[in-house]
Amino acid sequence: MDLDDELRRLFSDDRLDVHSTPDATEAVVRGAERRRRRRSATTTAFALVVLVGAGAALTQLPRSDDTAGDLLPTSTSSASATTTTTAVSTFTSTAIVTVDPPPNSNSSSSVKTETGQPTNKTTIPAIPAPPQPQAQPGQFGSLKLGMSEADALATGSLIEPSSAADPENRCKAYATKSVPDANAVIISPVRGIVRITVPGYAKTPKGITVGSTVDQVKAAYPNATQSGSTLFAKMAATPAWSYVFETDGSSVTAVLMRLDANDCSAV
């Protein structure tokens, strides 16, 4: 028996059809409208949270202004803060977000408090772990490139159990609280975390995120190299790492941070 043919036969079987009720379309359209309205109803709150969330996401990405001029945000972006706490959640009733102060006011933080909606099922980008006080190279939230598996697990950002990340079953893959994909974080037994997938809502300090165009990536990272549809932007940091921008040829589909000295195959 040829399994390939069997599978194709099964998947073309009429019995796979699911009969939808006549009002299915109507139900979907109404549901979509409800979701959209819920968003509009909380526009102010939502916009603020998203805005602040984006700011917070920015703070979580490494801002190696101490190590790499390449990574420096524009003058309007915030500088490294002394203290930063972030807690945005769909399920708590209050989200308190602290945004990094602008460069000229290093001593104060602007705090914005917004009352969330416990019943609101609309997905608000959940900002996972609070960023560390100092921005460090190769770090997203509490996860750092090079961090050992035990330390990574201790952050509480990983979702167990792990799965095999390579055919040899040497490296491990974890989903994270912010990225449900099973390969969100890849950990080598020797080098620690070798790759972190950044959530779709996060932006690099240069403003690149999922959906940015290839041209925007090249403009933001003029030293980026391209291999196939993937772009690599090396960061000056220790240990050396690169942003990996996976694209579909025209726009970014995933942003990853990857240790240059990475010893997991197929990563």
Binding site: V18, A27, V28, G31, A32, R35, R36
Partner: peptide, 28 residues
Amino acid sequence: LRYGHALTGNPHDAADLVQSVLEKVGSR
């Protein structure tokens, strides 16, 4: 729905999956 059925292995989950994903997509 067919694709959802293949993916989830049962028609109920297929219907739920299609409904929730389409609602999200529709709202944006």
